[in-house]
Design a protein around this nucleic acid. Structure first.
Ligand code: FES
Ligand code: FES
Lengths: 147, 147
DNA sequence: ATAATTAAGGACAAAAATATCCTTTATTTT
DNA sequence: AAAATAAAGGATATTTTTGTCCTTAATTAT
């Protein structure tokens, strides 16, 4: 459904959401290893998500790394797709018409539009926090000990 | 959702289904023009769909071209996706895990699996003929006159 | 038989997506 | 101030997808 880049973006953001805090930032090495993605490529993606007060926060230098503010945690997953310029995927026509619309529908449109709406709703209503929480329930992660 | 190649495959097949018959075959020139796709690239795709008694039938030489047998018309759209090796898209994990499964679900899985099932059902239950018929209802096509 | 037509198929080109490497900048620790 | 650490950013490489062009093979019409 999504590009590799977007998949990495989603996995990385969820991982950061689960394991980081402002006091406990994560390095790119750990993140890439944890989500099983190429390190440098993932770094570029995190740059994108970090740019101009984006979804992810970052600090350079020793003790630095990536983390999610509690405000960012509450943002919908669709914001990640938007930054990755893939939120358009959800609105696209199955047959590749310029625009998926009622005005100029393709023969799949009538049957597809309902599914499309569900997809949009899913990504709009689900927050990063919810995914992180769900992931914790599925496979608990050893959170770093407070010092 | 799908690659350009698959979009062209779907559009071309539907167009052929609407306008062709064994007595009235269509040339690649007309098809590419009608579905607004690059001619040579589309030719390659039709080759794929034609290979070893595939979905589309073809005949070379004067009066030749592409057409759909009435048997092929009744095949599900998913068969096109299968030939294009994109039927896997429907089963893929949203976050890009190797396998989307109950055994090792990602945090989107619970919410996504229902939508995924609908997508699979849609492509499995919809036939090429149905799409062609629906398309005719939306935008009637001037069918070639019998001679 | 020869010429004309049309798809099949191979070779190649361009563009986009994915991935790596190296240098620079910001920050902290010594 | 100097050294160390970690992200930011630029340049480049690789792979995949998309697209073009030209030759070959099959079929029909002359
Ligand atoms: S127009 Fe094709 S899916 Fe809506
Ligand atoms: S495991 Fe990710 S969608 Fe099913």
């Amino acid at each position: 459904m999504f590009s590799k880049a977007t998949e990495y973006a989603l996995r990385a953001t969820i991982y950061i959401a689960r394991k980081s805090s402002e006091e406990n930032k994560l390095g790119i090495e750990e993140i890439a290893k944890a989500i099983n993605s190429p390190k440098s490529f993932t770094a570029k993606i995190l740059q994108k998500l970090t740019a101009n007060n984006g979804i992810i926060s970052s600090v350079r230098g020793p003790g630095g790394g990536f983390y999610l503010s509690s405000k960012a945690q509450k943002r919908p997953v669709r914001d990640i797709l938007h930054v990755m310029e893939e939120d358009g995927v959800l609105g696209k026509c199955v047959l590749g018409l310029k625009k998926c619309s009622e005005a100029m529908p393709c023969p799949m449109h009538a049957e597809y539009k309902g599914i499309k709406q569900q997809l949009i709703q899913l990504f709009e209503h689900t927050t990063i926090q919810q995914l992180a929480h769900d992931a914790d329930k599925i496979i608990p992660l050893n959170k770093p000990a407070r010092h």
